[in-house]
Amino acid sequence: MKYLFVLPLCLLAAPLAAQSTTPADLVAQYSAEAGTEASADRGRDLFLATHTGGKPDTPSCTTCHSPDPKAMGQARTGKPIDPLAPSANSERFTDLKFVEKWFGRNCNSVFGRDCTAAEKADVVAWLSSL
């Protein structure tokens, strides 16, 4: 009987433990989680907008990432940040753990909360479309 509970948990844990993913898989995964289709336009708007509710030094994704995701960004420390668009940087969105870590940090810095699955789907969809 116990196994009936364990098995679905293993299935849920499997994608989280995976070392690699792709931008398309991420969009599919986040969209499924959200129950809505991803929108690259919404992702662009979210990424480029200035927000309130987060930390005052980081009102936008573009505070550190360039408004042109194919270009380099720069952290507030002066350290360069590699481009976010997979077309300019093939390593982007290939490691689920890394992606989740940075969405977790940066959504909280910029919005003061976690991003929803729908927001993640939208942003990854936009960045992948560039």
């Binding site: 930390k55 030094d57 980081t58 940090r105 940066n106 909280n108």
Partner: peptide, 11 residues
Amino acid sequence: LDDHFGENAGL
């Protein structure tokens, strides 16, 4: 680390 010099650097 949730407010690491103005940014979330949580681990």
